[in-house]
Structures are given as structure tokens and as C-alpha cells.
């Protein structure tokens, strides 16, 4: 299963990448993916992150599907 992960704002800054693709052998949930991101990029752990899957904010956990697009969103600071 492959998902595309896009980092925004400070998250992109800290991981030094805007977008990556990840392969998983097993299924993974949205929160599971968040945890994996925090393990792979420990420097991101201090930032409070929200996720969106296919441009819908994740409110409660669910299993991801192949080709899902995940946005990793640090605290919003518009205005």
C-alpha cells in the first residue's frame, strides 16, 4: 500500500521535504501513520500536528487506503 504525504509550514521546514511517498506492507491507520512519521522524524514531535486525508480533516482514526493523500498540518497561523 502506498500513500503520499505532504508536509506544510513548519512541518515541511523541519523534515526538509514537502512531499514523500511511503510504502506499507500492512494496513495502517491515520493515527498509526502519524506515529510512524514522528518516529521517522523525531524533530517533528515537538510540533502539534493535525492530519487531513484526501483533504478531509481527520477527527477520529480510520484505516488508510492505497493512494490516499495525507496532509501533515502544524498549528494554523493565517491572518
Amino acid at each position: 500500500m502506498k500513500v503520499k504525504i505532504t508536509f506544510y509550514g513548519q512541518a515541511a521546514d523541519v523534515v526538509k521535504s514537502n512531499s514523500i511517498e511511503w510504502d506499507f506492507d500492512d494496513s495502517i491507520s491515520a493515527f498509526g501513520l502519524k506515529k510512524s512519521i514522528q518516529v521517522k522524524y523525531p524533530q517533528i514531535s515537538s510540533i502539534e500536528l493535525k492530519l487531513a486525508v484526501n483533504n478531509k480533516m481527520v477527527v477520529k482514526d480510520f484505516d488508510l487506503n492505497d493512494c490516499d493523500e495525507i496532509s501533515v498540518l502544524p498549528p494554523f497561523s493565517g491572518g
Binding site: 506544510y8 502544524p74 494554523f76 497561523s77 493565517g78 491572518g79
Partner: peptide
């Protein structure tokens, strides 16, 4: 509307300093 935009819209501000360093804006 103003308060809701600041809270709910995924927009990110990077504050650029005069020495070209930066920090991320916090609302």
C-alpha cells in the same frame, strides 16, 4: 469570521527577519 479563519483555515505564516532567518508565526 476573523476568529474562525485564524482557528480553522490551514494557512501558515513564516516570519522573515532582516538577517534572512525566520520563525513560524503563532496565532
Amino acid at each position: 469570521i476573523l476568529e474562525a479563519i485564524k482557528k480553522d483555515a490551514p494557512i501558515f505564516g513564516k516570519e522573515i527577519f532582516d538577517d534572512s532567518t525566520h520563525q513560524w508565526k503563532v496565532n
